[in-house]
Design a protein around this nucleic acid. Structure first.
Length: 840
RNA sequence: GGGUUCGUAGCUCAGUUGGUUAGAGCGCCACAUUGACAUUGUGGAGGUCAGAGGUUCAACUCCUCUCGGACCCACCA
């Protein structure tokens, strides 16, 4: 076997390692040894959109998912990570449309079928790229179970779900006002609308009373909609308008007479307290229109331009053009009382960033209230745990105020509704069916909201509704790991659908990670070039380093910053591990029983046991950061800095191997590539991937290391001596060896001070005695003097510390009220401090 | 309007149910270094834990308020 290189080169090993894993087939839990007897552990990978490449946020998610999967696989469970991709209906259509437009091709010119061909081509390309990238992060996903939301099986699931909901009366079609994106030419759900505060104007318009007794002034940010006004509304309790009840006003410009109505929904504080009502083009007005049976006048069309009903003068204008012209006209009529600057929230389509027009159209809806109630109960009862917990509140709040979900989209890419129509005797018939009911039936051209299929993800990927073997074994999944920003879009809907269709929760725990920000706390953005490109970083520093930098210092639900220096730090860590291993491997592994004889041996064993405990507890608590931090500290500051240094003087090769072996298993979920590579040096024909998680042994974890820690303190004191005494590099001192710890070579090697053991100290006036710990060193007096002045300062600090503990212990109330554990703790602290004072 | 979250060393962050002399990494300074590693080692400087009040024997930690940042939800026209 060739020598290990001096530095770790991730690029060389990563691909080969992943190939070894894949070829072993062990990502598929059914192929694991004794698969049937293993307890399953499942994670459904949130399917990335096929709109493009993976970004750093995906990497974070994949890293955490894979970390959990590898951990549970090592623990002997049948760990299944189900991979897949999402067709991302509107998002993908917008992207492909944009791409085609660059080539001068318009969607409507080539027609639905041709357009969909283009999208499928896109899907093939980006779907493949996403898979490649997922593999590069090291995700140990079962590729034999890879799914796409528009696969045959998943489409069947979608249609089945739709039909079931329809048959149960939970899906209905209705003419409603919905958010309409004029650019995408489709309705969208409330969640797909972003609100942005923009400075605008508030216009005060005078509407004269028909009886000539004056006028009512209304305030509006959208004066153009007055062309479709069918009422003016005031609050019933508003004294200012008490005399106006039942009267009518005449609309300027159109000259229509419209009534003044009263409704408690009106906010008396806003504007003048009187509101113009345009039922066809405003959400609140639509509702007022319904309750007061107002006529509906549509003046804006699906293309965002004014309709003939707005009047010849305005027909065909865009909303903004019409606004301008209406204002001019009103000014001419002297109908504008005043205008004010006003900041208001504009609704934008989250995909195209176009201003949303609330429009009335025929759409399909899911009645979510009954589904939501059960979904709330699942979380309230603890069947589903959300980490971090605070998102529970947000979840409840949203769920309890949920509106019916508009699921139909007037776009092409997606699952076409399993709804069929035909006209019989002049009457339209509707049927919901998985197949065409007959030759005279035509299918609804709408497609489903992309989150409809996504909501079925955990069970549709496991074969529902047709093949239920996987479903029975691997569902409910154990953890759902995703970004908090799709809690409502996706997580909530999965819970609702899973409870409804398979009568169980989709997952037991939801782990929400935060957004990855750049060094300055900005959202990483490709277009602004402020992001850390995960592929570039992976190439430069290694996937393991990238993974580790995403894990450590990251808390659930908390946005966190990633910067190159941090990744570099973990590259250095990988290299440290590499070299530690090189040191260990440079010795032939001895056969036979491994003993832990020396103080250092027992100390590192104890530390190693503690590490097993801490990492295991951290992972079970989903505290990945703490677990990773523990692993980092152990390797660097215990194993390398102390134990390896001791080993240079006195070596226990067997134990070095044992500690390294254990360590590689613990680190593997975090840094799978390098650990697997090193493992192959230990066991050329075995895979770390499917080795076993170390079990802590309480017997070994005992505080065997206390004596070694004393030695460590002596070493530190000697180091301080060298630094603060001005002792020249070559000078040496003598001491009398008394115990095992008083090993001259060890002390010298660790402290950098040349020491030699003697039987008896010399009697010489130039020399003095220096007591460090229990050891007396003999050394030239001038060095001792300089050192003593430094040591005095340290002593003062330590003494004041001791005094403060004593004060606390002597405080009567402390003694009376503090829990005994705390008191014991304080006593120990005092003892340690006193001990240190002696050893200084 | 409702809700969430953050403010700890120059920078990025830990700090477990209140109980170490408040920690780490990076950066900075000094020194060291030919039996793994300069992608190294040892040591040092640097913090009134945003501010004010309160609860407590004890507050970075709990409560109230103030200041400053980030975000989510919502049909203030």
């Amino acid at each position: 076997m060739p020598e290990l290189l001096k530095t770790y080169n991730p690029r060389e090993v990563e691909q080969a390692i992943y190939r070894r894993w894949e070829e072993s087939g062990l990502f598929n839990p059914d192929k694991l040894p004794l698969a049937k007897r293993r307890k399953p552990f499942t994670i459904s990978m949130p399917p990335p959109n096929i709109t493009g490449e993976l970004h750093i946020g995906h990497m974070l998610g994949l890293t955490i998912q894979d970390l959990l999967i590898r951990y549970h696989r090592l623990r002997g469970e049948a760990a299944l990570l189900v991979p897949g991709t999402d067709h991302a209906a509107i998002a993908t259509q917008v992207v492909v449309e944009r791409e085609l437009r660059k080539e001068g091709v318009q969607r409507h010119e080539i027609g639905r079928e041709k357009f969909l061909e283009h999208v499928w081509k896109w899907k093939e390309k980006y779907g493949r790229r996403i898979v490649e990238q997922t593999k590069r992060v090291g995700a140990s996903a079962d590729w034999s179970r890879e799914r796409f939301t528009m696969d045959k099986g998943l489409t069947l699931a979608v249609n089945t779900a739709f039909k079931r909901l329809y048959d149960d009366g939970l899906i209905y079609r209705g003419e409603r006002i919905t958010n309409w994106c004029p650019a995408c030419r489709t309705s969208i759900s409330d969640l797909e609308v972003d609100h942005e505060d923009v400075p605008g104007k508030l216009w005060y318009i005078k509407y004269p009373l028909t009886d000539g007794s004056g006028h009512v002034t209304v305030a509006t940010t959208r004066p153009e909609t007055m062309l479709g006004d069918t009422a003016v509304a005031v609050h019933p309790g508003d004294a200012r308008f008490a005399s106006f009840a039942g009267k009518t006003v005449r609309l300027p410009i159109t000259g229509h007479n419209i009534p003044i109505i009263t409704d408690t929904k009106i906010d008396r504080e806003f504007g003048t307290g009187a509101v113009k009502v345009t039922p066809a083009h405003d959400m609140l007005d639509y509702e007022l229109g319904q309750t007061h049976r107002l006529p509906i006048v549509r003046i804006i069309g699906f293309d965002g331009r004014l309709l003939p009903a707005a009047g010849v003068e305005y027909c065909g204008l865009s909303v903004l053009e019409a606004r301008q012209r209406v204002i001019e006209k009103l000014r001419g009529l002297n109908a504008i009382e005043k205008e004010e600057d006003h900041i208001h929230a504009v609704a934008l389509c989250s995909r195209s960033k176009t201003v949303i027009e609330p429009l009335i159209s025929k759409q399909w809806f899911v009645r979510v209230k009954p589904l939501a109630e059960k979904a709330v109960r699942a979380v309230r009862s603890g069947k589903i745990k959300i980490v971090p917990e605070r998102f529970v509140k947000t979840y409840f709040q949203w769920m309890e105020n949920i509106h019916d979900w508009n699921i139909s989209r007037q776009i092409w890419w997606g699952h076409q509704l399993p709804v069929w129509y035909r006209t019989q005797n002049g009457r339209e018939e509707t049927r919901v069916s998985l197949t065409r009911p007959g030759p005279s039936w035509t299918q609804d051209t709408d497609t489903l909201d992309t989150w409809f299929s996504a909501g079925l993800w955990t069970f549709s990927t496991l074969g529902w509704p047709k093949n239920t073997a996987d479903l029975r074994r691997y569902h409910p999944t154990d953890v759902l790991e995703t970004a908090w920003d799709i809690l409502f879009f996706w997580v909530a809907r999965m819970i609702m659908f899973s409870l409804y269709f398979v009568k169980e929760v989709p997952f037991k725990t939801v782990y929400l990670h935060g957004l990855v920000l750049d060094e300055h706390g900005q959202k990483m953005s490709k277009s602004k070039g402020t992001g850390v490109d995960p592929l570039v970083m992976g190439d430069k520093y290694g996937t393991d380093a990238l993974r580790m930098s995403l894990i450590v210092g990251n808390a659930p639900g908390q946005d966190f910053r990633l910067y190159e220096k941090k990744i570099e730090g973990y590259r250095n860590f990988a290299n440290k591990l590499w070299n530690v291993s090189r040191f260990v491997l440079s010795n032939e592994r001895p056969r036979g029983r491994v003993t832990a004889g020396s103080l250092a041996d027992r100390w590192i064993l104890g530390k190693s046991q503690q590490l097993i405990k801490n990492v295991t507890r951290g992972l079970d608590k989903l505290d990945f950061s703490a677990a990773g931090q523990n692993l980092y500290d152990f390797l660097w500051h215990d194993f390398a800095d102390w134990y390896l240094e001791v080993s240079k003087v006195r070596k226990n090769v067997g134990l070095l191997y044992v500690v390294l072996d254990n360590y590689l298993r613990l680190l593997h979920p975090f840094m799978p590539f390098i650990t697997e590579q090193l493992w192959s040096r230990l066991y050329p024909d075995r895979l770390l991937l499917v080795s076993a998680w170390p079990k802590p042994s309480p017997r070994l974890a005992e505080a065997a290391g206390q004596l070694f820690e004393k030695l460590q303190r002596t070493v530190v004191a000697l180091r301080n001596f060298r630094l603060h005494s001005g002792l020249p590099a070559g000078a040496s001192c003598s001491f009398v060896a008394r115990s095992e710890a008083d090993d001259a070579r060890l002390l010298a090697a660790l402290s950098g001070v040349r020491v030699q053991t003697v039987r008896r100290l010399t009697v010489d006036s130039r020399y003095g005695d220096l007591l460090i710990g229990e050891i007396t060193f003999q050394i030239e007096k001038r060095y001792i003097e300089r050192f003593e002045s430094w040591r005095q300062k340290e002593r003062v600090a330590l003494e004041s510390h001791i005094a403060s503990i004593e004060r606390k212990l002597n405080n009567e109330r402390f003694a009376a009220r503090a829990p005994s554990a705390v008191v014991t703790n304080e006593r120990e602290k005092l003892a340690t401090a006193k001990q240190r004072l002696l050893e200084l």
